[in-house]
Design a binder for these strands. Structure first.
Length: 580
RNA sequence: GUUCAUGUAGCUCAGUUGGAUAGAGUACUUCCCUCCGAAGGAAGUGGUCAUGGGUUCGAUUCCCAUCAUGGACACCA
């Protein structure tokens, strides 16, 4: 069991022995360091239920706290605040215990299967900066869940069908009308496609512009899309498969650069085979009803205050739509994996839509109540003016472009003669981008400003990397000096003590992040730990310390912080280079 | 119009079951490399926590109203 949890449990037991009516005890880090390390504020809350003055209650609580044997300097202040600190030897023992343990003082969760749907990439469209957050957050949540003991399946859930397919095919047809994809026949071999991923980057925006401004073209696009989706036109199907291949390869590379990986590289079109089954189940439930020619599910509840329109499952012209494929995907996932939870990581603006889908799924029996469907929204990406982000030319900034710009800036700061300069610059770039992305809360609206990522001083990815590398460097040099370390003898003072107290909070931080599905607490924690160490580093000259025991203690602490940083950075999918 | 979210230092953001004197980075003003990696460390300036009420021992946090900004509101994805 985690150390702090165990202490809190012991305190609670002592309280119960004295008939203190509390269900939970929380040790809260003191807001005023000089008063103690922790505070307990329950005496004031208990005053009402126990019909006694807070101070009288505090006296009883203090007795209990003393009996646990963990604390020193227990005192009552103000209205009934109890201040207390851990005994020094406990802190010392803690470092030794954690550095030699396999669990690293982290409390694990029950092993249950979770499917996480994130990424949101569209075939034949370039990944733009708006895809950054869902990829980063989704990947980190996946790693966090795994770290805490969950079994996780990550699904990219490509947008691989729909109008953009029609547009891209239309444009290729315009350019290369003689390719046999457009013969109208089912050929045995299909032509080589003279298209690269680079071409695809400009084909979609171009076709989109053309179609938007010309009704005739738009109609042709609609027709192509319909023939592709129905599978009637074999040439279109074959062509789209080729385009998918090119595009997926490109998208995979970019995700890989972001240290993002999926277990399932499937798309909406992979749900097609499940549509019939899905509709059968929904029909049988009796909740799939006709309305204005369309088939819908009413998902409003009496308790709703906000508008909750019905979910349209089949259009009045008989066609399927996004929701249909979403429901079919759910059927597919339930059937193949029977997960305990499915998480959707997507833009906040999709919240209502997902809640409709979830309600319809439960109502029609696609998903049992025992499986949780959850939507975790991400703040909308805006420009500096607070309005939806666009570049000067009106298009979204590409992710590739962002990475390129940041990397250039990083290279400017690097030693020209460094080995593996390009690779290291790239790792620092990803760290800079990811860390900046994790700092604000998941739901905070996102102001996209390139300078936010290019900043490399202060609370940034490069700062964390720099310090972690410095720790590595110290430990390597210590080894060269043949110094053994994994014991901690010091009576911790000042900064050292602060560090150990912070290390104790790691477990809470991880669980807080998991419960909120938000990486911000972890990003913040890494910074706090790193900057404390940085101060410690300035205050003490570790490698030239003459007292062997002190030196060994400091090295042990260095090692523990380094390992903690690496562990947490790995959850955030940030690599630490050996040098920078 | 209905509804949801947001409003904290010049700027970008933390502050999760209500706790003592509201934090960080940046910017600005100063110090600190003959010594383990200065992409660093130390100190300072900067706040009517949008506004007005309410709940209570105690409110940035909970409730109500107002203002401002953004989103959503059935056959798009």
């Amino acid at each position: 069991m985690n150390f702090l949890n165990a202490v809190e449990k012991d305190i609670l037991n002592k309280f119960k022995e004295k008939d203190i009516p509390l269900e939970e005890v929380k040790l809260i880090r003191s807001s005023k360091k000089e008063l103690g390390d922790y505070q307990i504020n329950d005496a004031m809350k208990l005053a009402k239920v126990m019909h006694k003055s807070p101070r009288d209650i505090a006296i009883v609580l203090v007795n209990c706290l003393e009996e646990t044997g963990y604390f020193k300097d227990i005192n009552i202040a103000g209205a009934g605040f109890i201040n207390l600190s851990f005994k020094d030897e406990l802190l010392t023992e803690y470092v030794e215990k954690v550095i030699n343990s396999s669990t690293k003082d982290v409390e694990k969760l029950s092993k249950e299967k979770i499917i996480i749907d994130y990424g949101g990439a569209n075939i034949a469209k370039t990944l733009h900066v708006g895809h950054l957050r869902s990829a980063n957050i989704g990947e980190a949540l996946k790693r966090l869940a795994k770290y805490l003991g969950k079994e996780v399946i990550a699904d990219v859930h490509f947008g691989d069908i729909g109008r953009q397919s029609g547009m891209v095919i239309y444009e290729i047809k315009e350019r290369y009308p003689n390719l046999n994809y457009f013969s109208g026949k089912d050929e045995t071999t299909w032509d080589e496609l003279p298209i690269t991923s680079k071409d695809l980057e400009e084909i979609y925006p171009l076709a989109n512009n053309k179609a938007k401004n010309n009704e005739t073209i738009m109609n042709e696009v609609r027709e192509i899309t319909a023939e592709l989706e129905s599978g009637k036109n074999k040439g279109y199907v074959a062509l789209w498969d080729k385009i998918k291949e090119i595009s997926v390869k490109d998208i995979k590379n970019l995700y890989k650069e972001l240290n993002t990986d999926f277990d399932l590289w499937e798309g909406e079109s992979d749900a097609f085979p499940y549509i019939k089954e899905t509709l059968d189940i929904m029909n049988k439930s009796g909740y799939l009803i006709n309305s204005e020619g369309a088939k819908i599910v009413e998902v409003i509840k009496d308790t709703d205050k906000a508008p909750m329109p019905p979910l349209v499952v089949i259009k009045s012209n008989g066609a399927t739509l996004y929701a249909t494929r979403e429901l079919a995907t759910i059927t597919s996932r339930m059937k193949r994996f029977s997960p305990k939870e499915i998480w959707y990581i997507a833009d906040m603006r999709q919240e209502l839509y997902f809640h409709q889908v979830f309600r319809a799924s439960y109502k029609t029996g696609l998903v049992p109540q025992s499986t949780k469907l959850d939507f975790y929204g991400i703040g909308t990406m805006n420009g500096k003016d607070g309005k939806p982000f666009k570049t000067r030319d009106g298009n979204a900034a590409t992710l590739k472009g962002l990475i390129k710009n940041v990397k250039e800036e990083i290279l400017n700061h690097m030693n020209k003669n460094m080995e593996n300069k390009e690779k290291i610059a790239f790792q620092i770039t990803i760290a800079a981008i990811k860390y900046a992305d994790f700092l604000p809360n998941r739901t905070t609206d996102y102001i996209f400003d390139i300078n936010k990522f290019i900043d490399i001083e202060g609370k940034t990815g490069p700062y964390i990397l720099y310090n972690t590398i410095r720790m590595k460097s110290i430990l390597t040099k210590a080894k060269e000096q043949e110094i053994v370390y994994n014991n901690y003898y010091n009576k911790p003072v000042n900064t050292e003590k602060e560090i150990i107290l912070l290390l104790m909070e790691k477990n809470n931080t991880l669980h807080k992040a998991y419960n909120a599905k938000d990486l911000s607490p972890i990003a913040d924690y890494i910074y706090n730990l790193t900057s404390l160490y940085s101060r410690f580093y300035e205050e003490n000259h570790i490698l030239t310390e003459t007292n062997d025991k002190t030196k060994e203690s400091w090295l042990t602490l260095t090692k523990l912080i380094k390992e903690t940083n690496e562990e947490l950075l790995n959850i955030l999918a940030i690599d630490v280079p050996d040098k920078m």
